[in-house]
């Protein structure tokens, strides 16, 4: 139950500035996802919020109070690490209770009640006596989350928690985390990932970071529909948005135009553009057609159901006019 505000926060490691002046507000009870390519500073930003890392300059506020120098344990946060970071020599119960045993004035019964409550939420009660090494990756991740819940935090921080899980478990745990957010709707959650699917599916709002700066903040659909830059447009959405520049873009009065694969139709003739099929991918529910038409990367068209285009076929395509994103030379949208 805390709002977090960052005012011109900077972080430098020696001479290298990693966070270059971030202004950001995370609302109470919100699920905020930090997303961006590796090296964009998203993990560092999370660590600054956790207090594990000192900010170099700027201000960090929790509920309107400056916490620049406050120790992590006093910020009311809990953190789930990428590598789970369970204490290998402690049982699951001890792992979850460790933080509480360090707090003064916690009775044994109270600790047990809270550990068991968290364990029930995550259905790990039957593992309480086991050591981390006796658990699978997915179970360990639940314990790590359970340990965080036990602390009863105001802010829940996730640092790429799914990146060590295999694909199937990743989806299951993702749903689990989404459920957790619904159950603990008064807890603010901040989640770091480089995977835009995780960002789109989990977030109330997404913060796209690039090179130590906030590129855009908004709800998933805002980012999808109204990306603030070529960078965001290319980062959010799968398959990646097609970018077309040069003469074809000039026809739309733009330096670059962007159009998503799902917003292009293949038409018999009289299309806006035409191209040669170089590759097709049939995924069952939908399919992708890759076209060579003189752009830097092939243009992808997403079709419902299967298709039977062959390499070498020449096709005409028509973008939906109202779904075309126009960008100027600086990569900013023209509206």
């Amino acid at each position: 139950m805390a709002s977090i505000e960052l005012r011109n926060v900077r972080k430098a490691f020696g001479a290298v500035e990693v966070i270059k002046g971030v202004d950001l507000e995370v609302r109470k009870g919100e699920f905020m996802v930090f997303v961006g390519p590796s090296g964009c500073g998203k993990s560092t930003l999370l660590r600054l919020i956790s207090g594990l890392e000192d900010i170099t300059s700027g201000e960090m506020l929790f509920d309107g109070k400056v916490v620049n120098a406050l120790a992590p344990s006093k910020r009311g946060i809990a953190m789930v690490f990428q590598s789970y970071a369970l204490y290998p020599h402690m049982t699951v119960y001890e792992n979850m209770a460790f933080g509480l045993t360090l707090e003064k004035g916690q009775s044994k019964e109270e600790i047990q009640r809270r550990v068991e409550k968290a364990a029930d939420m995550l259905q790990i009660r039957q593992y309480l006596d086991r050591l981390p090494k006796q658990l699978s990756g997915g179970q360990r991740q639940r314990v790590a989350i359970g340990r965080a819940i036990t602390r009863d935090p105001k802010v829940f921080l996730f640092d790429e928690p799914l990146s060590n899980l295999d694909a199937a478990l990743r989806v299951a745990t993702r749903i689990e985390i989404a459920k957790l957010h619904e159950e603990m709707n008064q807890v603010t959650m901040i989640y770091v990932t480089h995977d835009q699917v995780e960002a789109m599916t989990l977030a109330d709002r997404i913060c796209v970071l690039r090179d130590g700066l906030v590129e855009q903040v908004g709800s998933p659909m805002e980012l999808y529909e109204h990306p603030n830059s070529v960078f965001v447009a290319g980062f959010i959405g799968s398959p990646k948005m097609n970018f077309i520049s040069g003469e074809k873009a000039a026809a739309f009065n733009a330096e670059t135009v962007g159009i998503r694969g799902e917003h292009i139709a293949i038409v018999p003739d009289n299309g806006t553009w035409s191209g040669t099929v170089i590759h097709t991918e049939n995924l069952g529910a939908d399919s992708y057609v890759y076209l060579e038409m003189g752009t830097e990367e092939p243009v992808v068209v997403r079709l419902d159901g299967a298709n039977d285009y062959k390499s070498g076929d020449v096709v005409h395509i028509a973008p939906m006019e109202d779904k075309i994103h126009r960008f100027d030379g600086a990569g900013k949208p023209i509206r």
């Binding site: 020696g14 594990l52 000192d54 120098a69």
Partner: peptide, 20 residues
């Protein structure tokens, strides 16, 4: 591994947290 480390001398951390 850079974790927990205040920035190297010179750049001088202007904010030394309780933790550090």
């Amino acid at each position: 591994t850079e974790a927990l480390a205040p920035p190297a001398a010179g750049a001088g951390p202007r904010i030394k947290s309780e933790l550090t």
